[in-house]
Every structure is written in C-alpha cells, then in structure tokens.
C-alpha cells in the first residue's frame, strides 16, 4: 500500500503574500491540468511569489511521517502542494532538483520528506550524499525521518541500504550536523558504523581537530573494542556537548562502572 501524502494547502495558503493569490491559483490549476510538465516553469517562481515566511506549524506526526514543520517556509509548503497537484509520484522531483537553482533544490528536498518513498527519493538521497551544500543536506535529511523511512522501505528493493545510511551518518559527521535532527537514525547504530566513526575520530584527533560529538552516542549504542575507553574519556571531555553525548552513550552502553560515574 502506498503511503498517503499529507495536504499542506492550508499551511501554504495561510501565508500567501498580498497579490500572490492570483498567481497561486493559476499555478495550482496548471499543475492539475498539465501535470508534471507544468512544474519546471512553476518551481523557479515559488520563492519570489510565495515567500520564505516560516510555517511555525510544529511537529507533524502522522505515520509514517515525522517532520518538523517549523523548519519549513511558505515556499516549501507550496512546492509540496504543487508536486502533489501534478499527480505524479516519480520522475519530476529528480528533474526539478537537477535543473533547479539552490532554492528549487531546497524546496524539492523538503517536499520529499513528506512524500512516500519512491525511486525519486532514492535518487535525491544520492544527490544529498554527493553535495556539500549544507542547506541541501539539512533540507533532505534533517528535521525529518526520511532517511529511516527510505531504509525501512525495503533496502535492496528501493536502493537505500544500511551501507547508504552509514555513509549518510559519516556525511553528517563531516559537516558537523546533529544526528538528533535526523529522526530515528540513532536507532540504527551498528558496530560497523561505530568503527567508521571511531576511525574518523582518530584521524581528527591526530590532526588536532574536533571530533563530531554524536560519535559518543553511536559508540555507546553499538559497541566496538574502543567504546568503553572513548566513553570514559568523553565523560571528562572539555566540550560540554561531548560530555552530554558521552553521558547519553554510557546510558546505552550499560557498563556498571561507567554508569556509577554518571551518578557520582
């Protein structure tokens, strides 16, 4: 069964700027009448026509979606509505991303976080993995559970595997983005991922550079040979965010001596 697509029309229309109503009604009508072929001319205009006012709509929780709409703008919601109005689940989103400017790409990626997993989703997660444009990584995989939905949709069938998730987490580490905003990802900790993060941490330490704080969370959840030593050191780390992550990791790790240090 295909997941439903939430209707954000109310959110988009509540924030329409003065004078944008006519354009918006025409855009919606074009999307409905012409389908995906209308979108390449409509998406570039979304930011300047609809604007970037924040939705301030809180957390959207409706199975299978978990998305923080406070991270969305009016133009993002409008893009989501147009994609759905065009009535096609596959194809146009990837084209819109590849031929889009920075804003269009952001809008497309946001929209994917509230749409069913499809070949488009997998293609765009691949684009997110290859880009270092931080806001596109944020738009695609933060403030949402898209990565975990893609993983749970069937791995080999959809093309997003545990290996892909590992690479994505390393990407977050490289860009210093918090895993807490990629909802559900921490629940998919594996020993292989912990080892990848440990190796990355050792490279950083050898270079005298900071280590991604969320490393300690993963090493506590999926133990490897160095987990205990790193967690113990993390509890006394100079950076408060590392200490907090280490405490979180220790609770998941369950070592009695380390847990006593938490109580001390």
């Amino acid at each position: 069964m295909t997941d439903h697509v939430p209707d954000l029309t109310g959110h988009a229309e509540a924030l329409l700027p003065d004078g944008a109503r006519t354009w918006w009604n025409q855009a919606l009508a074009r999307a409905r009448d012409e389908g995906p072929e209308a979108l390449p001319e409509l998406f570039p205009a979304l930011r300047r026509r609809i604007g970037t006012t924040g939705l301030s709509a809180g957390m959207f929780r409706e199975t299978p979606y978990l998305v923080d709409l406070d991270a969305w703008r009016a133009c993002d919601a409008a893009g989501h509505v147009l994609l759905e109005a065009a009535g096609s689940h596959d194809g146009p989103a990837t084209d819109l991303f590849l031929r889009g400017d920075l804003e269009e790409r952001t809008i497309v990626l946001k929209a994917m976080t509230l749409r069913p997993i499809s070949p488009d989703t997998i293609a765009l997660l691949g684009e997110v993995q290859r880009t270092n444009t931080v806001r596109h990584v944020e738009a695609g995989v933060l403030d949402a559970n898209l990565a975990v939905r893609a993983l749970e949709a069937g791995g080999p069938m959809t093309g997003f595997s545990q290996d892909d998730l590992h690479r994505l987490v390393l990407k977050l580490a490289f860009l210093d983005l918090p895993v807490a905003r990629a909802y559900g990802v921490l629940d998919h900790a594996t020993a292989e991922l912990s080892q990848m993060l440990e190796d990355f941490a050792q490279e950083r330490e050898a270079a005298g550079r900071p280590v991604w704080a969320d490393t300690w969370r993963f090493l506590g959840r999926a133990a490897i040979a160095t987990s205990r030593e790193r967690l113990a050191a993390g509890l006394a780390h100079a950076q408060p965010e590392v200490r907090a992550a280490a405490r979180d990791g220790v609770q998941a790790f369950g070592d009695t001596d380390l847990l006593k240090q938490l109580d001390a």
Binding site: P44, A45, R47
Partner: peptide
C-alpha cells in the same frame, strides 16, 4: 529555455 527564464537570477 522556458524553465530557465523563470529562475530568480
């Protein structure tokens, strides 16, 4: 061209 003629820049 039409899609490019709608870009912001």
């Amino acid at each position: 061209l039409p899609r490019y003629l709608e870009k912001d820049s």
